[in-house]
Amino acid sequence: MIRLEQVSKTFHPGTVNEVPALRPVDLVVEEGEFITIIGSNGAGKSTLFNLVAGTYPPSTGSIRINEIDVTREPEYRRARYIGRIFQDPLLGTAGSMTLEDNMMICLRKGFKGLKISLNRKQRQWFQEQLVDLEMGLERRMKDNVRLLSGGQRQALTLLMMVLSRPDLILLDEHSAALDPRNAALVLELTRRYIEEYRLTAMMITHNMQHAITFGTRLLMMDKGEVILDVQGEEKASLTVDGLVERFHAIRHRDLESDEARLSL
């Protein structure tokens, strides 16, 4: 369970450039929940992720993961509980290393010792896992990851993240940089893994339809605030037009991001 209490972030406080990126927010993510987060640019979605992941500390408030206070823990320490996938497929893998090397690095979190774990048995196990992706990657274990397509790299990142069994996964528009076919593939894989391994997940998306069809709970953010939080029946009955209307009813203005509507 992840618990955020009065977490906020202000950049450049006390200067003319002061930006309240996230206003104080309370949020509890229950185990097994799959939350989709939607909002226009500058709504604070990525700031929220960066605070949870520990890229920078919050200005106020506390963050707990499984009742452990991680507010002051640096990103690399929190990474033991959290798996994160970025929009840029290059950020999840080391391009100049082979597939099997990448998988070995990601298998276990935390400091690595002077053991040579990449043996025949381990390779075989990796190979079996790769078959699951149905991309033929199991035949390319010795290829450099640089040679893979963006979709393949992102799918590999997803698989490697799942193998380390994180308590929470953060998906930061992880299919947005891919072509439609690969994006659909990666999203489907995401849904499958989250169900199969009962993962707790948060996913940022610009696509309102995705936010509605995926997940068990939906958050809508605007100007650093969570303005809508729906789940269960209510979420199941949502439509894109309904969502746009809800936004209008709450904020008394039209949803600025046309991009969100265009990418239906």
Binding site: Y76, A79, G83, R84, L90, L91, T93, S96, F111
Partner: peptide
């Protein structure tokens, strides 16, 4: 190659 990846692995 990718420092972010190393950080993401808890190192």
């Amino acid at each position: 190659d990718n420092q972010q990846m190393v950080v993401s692995q808890g190192v």
